[in-house]
Amino acid sequence: MEALDIAPPRMAVLYGVVLLPWLLLGLTGLRLSRAIVVGILRMSLQLALVGVYLKTLFTLNNPWLNGLWILVMLVVADWAILTRAGLNRRYFFAATFAAVAGSVLFSTAYLLLLVIRPPLYYDARYLIPLAGMILGNCLQGNVIGLERFYDALRKNENEYLTYLLLGATRWEAVLPYFREAVKAAINPTLAGMATLGLVSLPGMMTGQILGGSEPWLAVKYQIAIMLCIFASTVLASILNLVLSVNIAFNEFDVLKEDVVERG
């Protein structure tokens, strides 16, 4: 059993569902009309492109091509993390790439090689969507962690310097902000796990059920992906912060002026 197809005319009907909210938002004077249209068009175009390249990747199923696609996803994620966290890419690009790539590849490899064990370990049907889901969630955690850490350091500059003058090493002095940042990075994933299935059916599970999978199989995959998302988010957030602390300060343990790009 497969999911029912949505024919093009009914796809057009689908866009009607946003018409009423769009009109209502227009009446509130929020001036979001243009942003909404652009957002919906971008989303549609991006997903259409995803459809095209996934179809190609699945057809060719070439390990090098699959690897190249994972690399592209990691570079784009790295760029997005630093832009959204407001950090200078010149300093952090390599460190964030290493932290995120290491954590995501570890979790994906663990899931594929030890748990799911597909006949081809590089099978695009498994590798690309699983790595993509893990990476997407890991990205959110890293943005929150980095943003929270550097924001706290800048806002509490005097406190940080006081710790240094009281004999703290750089690591001892940043530890309170580090702990808070890791907590903030992990919290959404933790909260998501705690309410999963009660508040909403998760996307992957819904997709599998619509695709014809047995609910139990869908549940097992959902548990697998949640555990891997949690592992990669924790690993990447901690590793990213640790690596960044070795980059963001000058030789006198003072935060470099230009590490944070926005005020």
């Binding site: 005097n158 406190e159 310097l161 006081t162 240094l164 003058l165 004999g167």
Partner: peptide, 15 residues
């Protein structure tokens, strides 16, 4: 210097 010095401002951080 930091080992020897104490900086006390108008509103010191007690932490």
């Amino acid at each position: 210097v930091r080992r020897r010095a104490a900086y006390i401002g108008q509103e010191p951080v007690l932490g």
